[in-house]
């Protein structure tokens, strides 16, 4: 499916749309006037510095956090597969991978095995969950999210704790899974250059949406470079300053929340 087709259909049948979301904690904007829509089959990556509100935005999308203002719209009966940022398991927690996969649903052994093979973890069905390596655990978590045949996969830092070679493989895997399972993907990543491989659209977040677009376009965006600083330049293949960019056209200016407009503390 080409990118153009997806964008054509997005107007009418977004899987999930967030409109002018504000999330305020302790008098501070965690999220400020964030809007985004996710269309079927699309891969969207959220990037941004630490504390930019990436995980919070995922939680609002998942319904785990309630936005203070703004709207979350989901298509009817949306099935979401969620892969959390980390699973802290005690080393002695006595749970096998098979049991873990079945905790909140009943699936036949064949389907478990097939799903694990799809994520390259077919040999782990009988392993102990607590004894998996970082990369293995990520794959099992991904597999578990896929078991539900989701229309939307929500992945919070899916390559965390995985070495660079493993990261490339995981991102490629996510791209393949999108094609095979026909699901949309919304993921958070710290990593800037690797993630671009398998992404249709990047949203650069720092409380507000700084810039959004295809990976190529975002990398040229002045807001993006301001956010990550010149240190990022060596990592980027393409960069040219865009003299056309004007701050007053940024979509994030202004919101109607009870705190002030400039993001200062209000008691």
């Amino acid at each position: 499916m080409s990118r153009e087709n997806r964008e054509d259909r997005s107007e009418s049948e977004a899987l999930l749309s967030l409109e002018r979301i504000c999330l305020i904690r302790g008098g501070r904007h965690i999220l400020k006037n964030v809007s985004c829509r996710i269309s079927p089959g699309e891969i969207i990556t959220l990037i941004g510095p630490n504390g930019a509100g990436k995980t919070s935005l995922l939680k609002v999308a998942l319904g785990l956090l309630k936005a203070d203002t703004g709207q979350v719209r989901r298509s009817a009966e949306l099935r979401i597969g969620y892969m959390p940022q980390k699973l802290v398991i005690d080393r002695t927690f006595p749970l096998s991978v098979a049991r873990f996969m079945r905790l909140t649903g009943r699936y036949p052994e064949v389907q478990l095995q097939q799903t694990l093979e799809d994520v390259g973890a077919g040999h782990l069905l009988d392993a102990r969950l607590a004894e998996l390596s970082g990369g293995e655990l990520q794959r099992v978590l991904l597999g578990r999210a896929l078991l539900r045949r989701p229309q939307l996969l929500v992945l919070d830092e899916p390559v965390q704790g995985v070495d660079v070679q493993g990261q490339v493989e995981l991102f490629e895997l996510i791209g393949r899974l999108r094609d095979n399972y026909g699901c949309a993907v919304l993921m958070v990543s710290h990593d800037l250059h690797l993630v671009m491989v398998a992404t249709d659209r990047v949203i650069c977040l720092n409380q507000h949406v700084c810039c959004t677009g295809s990976p190529e376009a975002v990398q040229r965006d002045e807001q993006f470079l301001k956010l990550f600083g010149p240190a990022i330049l060596p990592h980027l293949a393409i960069y040219s300053h865009d003299p056309q960019h004007r701050h007053d056209q940024c979509p994030h200016q202004g919101c109607n929340c009870p705190t002030d407009q400039e993001g200062e503390h209000v008691r």
Binding site: L62, Y82, L87, I89, T104
Partner: peptide
């Protein structure tokens, strides 16, 4: 079963119903 799911990851359990 729900208790086990919550013990492993509360948010994951919540998303899974």
């Amino acid at each position: 079963r729900p208790l086990l799911a919550i013990s492993l990851h509360e948010d994951l359990a919540r998303v899974e119903g």
